[in-house]
Amino acid sequence: MLGKLIKHEFKATARIIWPMYAGMVVLALITRLAAMPLLDSQHSFFINAISILIIFLFGLCMIALAFMPLIISAVRFKKNILGSEGYLTMSLPVNTDQVLCSKMITSLVWYFASALLGLAIILMMVFWGQDIQLFSGGIDLKGFFEEAARLSAENKKIIWNVVLLITEFVVDGVILINLGTLIVYASYSIGYSVNKHKSLLTVVLFFVLFHISNWVCVLGIFIFGRQSQRWIDFMTGVNGLQSFLAGMLLLMLISSAVLYFITRFFITRKLNLE
């Protein structure tokens, strides 16, 4: 059933996100092909002003792209669980965990897709029209892999440490993004459990939970950062950074679990669909 929930979650969100992605690509092309070449002092003030405006708009849209998955996830949660659609969603033969997981997984995938699109757009903006020779002369890939193989043969610990470090970065990133989603879910589920001033309470709760989570993270940085004596030492094994990331991961997992169970409690025990 989780697979079916995810399928329908994608259907519901994709119809909004795909046109936004398409619009973003079109805006990037307009900015790169029309606005940026026009940004020249030889043009009139009016043309330069329009070019700057388009570039500014593009910058705003890039920022919006970063927040879009969170906003769509929030709207979807509100409509699909706490709004009138909740009458159907919450009476499906699935459990609450499956409903929540389907929304979190879908949201994470859209974050990943938005990050990829953002990266692709930035690369396009930078390298458009340039003769890119990364592999023919710029970087000696063969030499790089030979050197990496030699180093790892000499000290196998290095390669494992690098793999572990990258894995920790990715897992920490995923949990951090999901923590943001859970702050929104918890705020909504508490805020919409009352009869009056639901939206206001949700906004207040969002800022309260956001600041609490921030302070927990700062506390983690202080505790685990101080204990990390040697941050990056590839020959002895990146231990400082690894233990810092592991400590932060633990803190974020605890925060996520607390927010998840708050959300779960309120939508199972205090659901208010009036």
Partner: peptide
Amino acid sequence: KAITSYLPERMALAEWMTAAQAMDYYADFF
């Protein structure tokens, strides 16, 4: 819930769906 068919007092189907998509939704879950 798998053996209970519920008609709520208000419209619970997503407004963006078509009738065919609503049927797909029911067929998938029930």
